[in-house]
Amino acid sequence: MIRVESLSRIYPATAKSVAVTALKDVDIAVRRGEIYGVIGRSGAGKSTLLRAVNGLERPTSGRVLVDGVDIGALTDSDLRAERRKIGMIFQHFNLLSSRTAYDNVALPLEFAGVDRAVIRPRVEALLDLVGLSDKRDRYPVELSGGQKQRVGIARALATEPKVLLSDEATSALDPETTRSILALLAEINRTLGVTIMLITHEMAVVKDVATRVGVMEDGLLIEEGDVYDVVTRPRTDTARSFLGTLAGREIPPGLAARLRPSPEGTTTALIRLGFTGSRSTEPVISRLSRELGLDVAVLQGQVDEIGGRPFGTLIVSLPNAALADGSAERFLAHYDVATERLGHVA
């Protein structure tokens, strides 16, 4: 549905600043009907990437195809027509303070020159879809952040787009509201079949709704794959660092303060275990303890699901010796458990 082909964007040098490369040779293919997440820190280029999809950014080289249409090759008026097929929602909602919820949702239809008699039922159906029928005549100032984003989503869907772009749509919201907005996006994706491309700096967002994820750093797409694979077996340090914020992956703070990189002067080692697939329910820890005769302490743990597939994370401590000869890690690898050394404590 969206094809990004060796896309680069360089902001030329000005009198005040040097040239900045926001995107370097990025290739992405977003499939029809999927939710694709792009994760990266601020300045990684994800915002530039998203804006290239609806032509708000002109690529320096490469191209973007949306449903087969080369966005960069369109005339101004063709681009406007194409943008009606691509909805967009924003971190700060970007609602007009001078218009009610109803009139905000009607705005893109007014831009498109749609007849008032057609606008009315469509806007009312959309407000109903996002659960805001009772806020129809409220101005944005009278709405909560979550309600404003619902208006934003209804507005983005008004012209019945095939693609929805989400620019950090939940970053200004509290965790509970974030979950409800993500659930709404997932529902829209499922019921209307709208392809969604979202950018975020939170792995929890990707984990909750996306089917695939791309990790960006310094304008490059450095890792890509199914969300399950990237979350359970990240290949880059950047991807791993985003996982750090997920529940159950954090080292308890008291322990983190005492953590040392080298085993010298310490007795135990901390490792993080990742359980995936069918073996995630096997009694691996008790076998590890019994068969290798090790004292194992569980310090932190979480079992979660991504798209209905379970995965577990455990932080455990082992005697240093079991790591030094590699026996524990060999044993765990046999059970398909991913291991990551975290450090040592006295």
Binding site: L56, R80, A81, E82, R83, F90, H92, N94, L96, F111
Partner: peptide, 29 residues
């Protein structure tokens, strides 16, 4: 007027005149 509103309007497929008439002037009123 918040620049984000101009960007949002462009993303909705508005012409520059529509942005002035339906967004900038009402918001600046």
């Amino acid at each position: 007027v918040d620049q984000g509103l101009i960007e949002a309007s462009q993303a909705m497929g508005a012409t520059p005149f529509q942005i002035v008439r339906k967004v900038l002037v009402p918001e600046a009123l």
